[in-house]
Simulated scan of single mutants.
Amino acid sequence: MYALITFATGLVFGLGLAVSEMTNPTVVIGFLDIFGDWNPSLIFVMGGAVAIGMIGYVIRNRRSKPWLADKWYVPTRRDIDKNLVLGAAMFGVGWGLSGYCPGPGLTALTNNPMEGFYFVASLIAGSALFHFQNHRKSN
């Protein structure tokens, strides 16, 4: 049952990305270009995501545990440190330059294979670099 719900959730998420055109970097960059040729259409996508997230919080607050897990896994840290700010800034700059964030970037492997390959390879390299740096710090 867990695998089926996970698959269905991923399918709905991917369908939402495709229908909203979040998989099209031109649309994403158009949304981020507020001082140029701005495309406000993704505001509705953002509004829908916030609404679904709010429903999720209501469900979480009313249930002692999730349907398919033993407990809720919720972040407990609330501090804002330099790593959080730097990571968010790097994510934003990368998203703004490429028009891809990780989910839609994976779809580029089929929509635009060469560009998708470069994006996914860079994503893997950046993740490996982060892992290497954190592993080195803990030793």
Rank of each mutant, 00 (worst) to 15 (best):
S41C: 03
F119I: 01
W72T: 07
A108M: 08
R63A: 04
S127A: 15
G56S: 07
I59S: 05
I55R: 11
F132T: 13
N111F: 06
I5M: 13
G116I: 04
F91M: 12
F132A: 14
G14D: 06
E115Q: 11
G99R: 05
A108F: 03
D81S: 09
G92R: 08
N111C: 07
L68Y: 09
I55V: 15
S64W: 02
F44L: 13
S41G: 12
D79N: 12
V19G: 08
V85Y: 04
I43A: 08
R63F: 11
V28G: 03
G56D: 04
N24T: 08
G94L: 11
D79W: 09
S122L: 07
L106A: 13
V93Y: 05
I29P: 03
G14W: 06
S41R: 11
G10I: 12
R63E: 08
P40Q: 11
S138L: 14
G96F: 05
C101A: 13
D81Q: 11
V45D: 02
S20Y: 08
A108T: 03
G16Y: 14
A8K: 07
F91K: 07
F91E: 00
V58S: 06
A108L: 02
L32Y: 01
N61P: 01
G105F: 05
L15E: 02
M114G: 11
Y2R: 15
L4I: 12
K65W: 01
G16T: 10
Y2N: 10
H135T: 14
T9E: 01
D79Q: 14
I124T: 08
Y100E: 02
T107C: 10
V28C: 04
V19E: 09
F31I: 02
K71L: 00
N112A: 11
T76L: 15
Q133T: 04
I52E: 01
M46Y: 11
A3R: 13
R136C: 06
I5A: 05
A108S: 15
P104F: 06
L4N: 03
V27G: 02
M90Y: 03
W38V: 01
V28H: 04
R136V: 11
D33C: 02
L17V: 14
R78L: 06
T107I: 11
A125D: 01
V50A: 12
M22E: 04
F132W: 15
R63W: 12
L97F: 08
G10P: 00
K137W: 08
T26R: 15
G10C: 10
A89E: 07
S98R: 00
N112K: 06
F130L: 13
S98M: 11
W95L: 14
T23F: 11
L129Q: 05
P102E: 12
G30P: 14
I34F: 09
Y118P: 02
R77H: 08
G105Q: 07
